[in-house]
């Protein structure tokens, strides 16, 4: 039976290659989302996919491949056949996973150069929030208190080396303070533990924290972005407050396997450029309270290089957690 199976698999591999010669795309495109339905990546992927669908006249199927903090889905896309029929919607963590693998001396799940960027879709700065009943009114209060008792103020994150962890460590090292890290499995539990009073601070996206700020449960202290957030016009950025290098975004961007032929990448870039101007797409983003942050491939590549370098440095600084 095994021989039969391998013969059939061999046959299956041959087939699509002959079909792909006609004008791209001739069959549905798969958009891999390395997180479960409903997460940030998924919420960005679905409107993008449906806007692309209209322009390509072929279905763009969102395929959720969650697992290992995104490593499973990303490596599926990184190792997919570079025929333009597999694309990936990834988050900032894409550059962190190989760094963490390197740190532990593990066989990396994938390398960043196995993927080529198509476009950046959204980028949300994280917001530093503390409970509304905490004594810190400003970032200066927080830093002063943290200096007085190093390692005592605790913050939650969505996991070790998760984006939320790295953002906080970036700030802590710039401010020269020591905070206690409490990792959870996902952004949801991290928020729950802050609201329950188990930790004293959290960095998370505006979509997550703004409703709780409006309800008077949380107080925002600072914003990791280069500019203020529309929903929180009174919250200063770290750069305004004098922390020059503290900049961080939870971004979502489209990638394709690195060996995908240039004409197909070009087509995907054109389609994405048009898709992000789709009215329905913009409406969905507005509902999610996420501004569009479109960047085409060359600028996205630059953004990515800078971001990856910053994150790699943060991972190295944290080192192995004992």
């Amino acid at each position: 039976m095994k021989r039969l199976a391998s013969a059939m698999i061999g046959l299956a591999l041959l087939l699509p290659a002959t079909i792909a010669a006609q004008e791209y795309p001739t069959r549905p495109i798969t958009m891999v989302v390395p997180f479960p339905p409903g997460g940030v990546a998924d919420q960005t992927a679905r409107p993008t996919a449906s806007a692309m669908e209209k322009l390509l006249r072929q279905p763009v199927v969102v395929s959720n491949r969650p697992g290992a903090a995104g490593a499973v889905g990303i490596s599926v896309a990184a190792n997919a056949r570079p025929d333009g029929y597999t694309i990936l919607m990834a988050l900032s963590s894409i550059s962190v996973i190989p760094e963490a693998d390197k740190l532990f001396g593990r066989q990396p799940a994938y390398q960043l150069n196995q993927l080529t960027p198509i476009a950046l879709i959204t980028a949300d700065p994280t917001i530093l929030v503390v409970p509304a009943d905490s004594p810190w009114k400003t970032l200066a209060d927080f830093v002063a208190d943290a200096k007085k008792r190093p390692g005592e103020i605790s913050y939650s994150s969505s996991g070790v080396y998760s984006t939320l962890h790295l953002a906080m460590e970036m700030f802590a090292s710039a401010a020269d303070i020591k905070l206690k890290h409490v990792p959870f499995n996902g952004a949801g539990p991290a928020l729950t533990s802050l609201l329950g009073g188990h930790v004293q601070a959290l960095a998370s996206g505006p979509g997550v924290v703004v409703p709780h700020i409006e309800a008077g449960k949380l107080r925002p202290l600072a914003n990791w972005g280069a500019a203020r957030v529309a929903a929180l016009p009174d919250v200063p950025t770290f750069q305004e407050l004098g922390y020059k290098d503290v900049e961080f975004y939870i971004w979502a961007g489209l990638f394709a396997p690195a060996q995908t032929p240039a004409p197909l990448i070009g087509k995907l870039r054109d389609i994405t450029r048009a898709a992000v101007n789709d009215a329905e797409f913009l409406g969905t983003l507005k509902n999610m309270q996420t501004p569009r942050a479109y960047l085409d491939a060359p600028e996205f590549q630059k953004f990515l290089d800078k971001d990856a370098a910053r994150l790699a440095e943060a991972v190295k600084r944290i080192g192995k957690v004992e």
Binding site: M1, A5, M8, I9, A12, L13
Partner: peptide
């Protein structure tokens, strides 16, 4: 068991 193993091998190609 054999069938399930075959399925694991073949699902994503066949």
């Amino acid at each position: 068991l054999g069938s399930a193993a075959f399925a694991a091998l073949a699902l994503e190609t066949l």
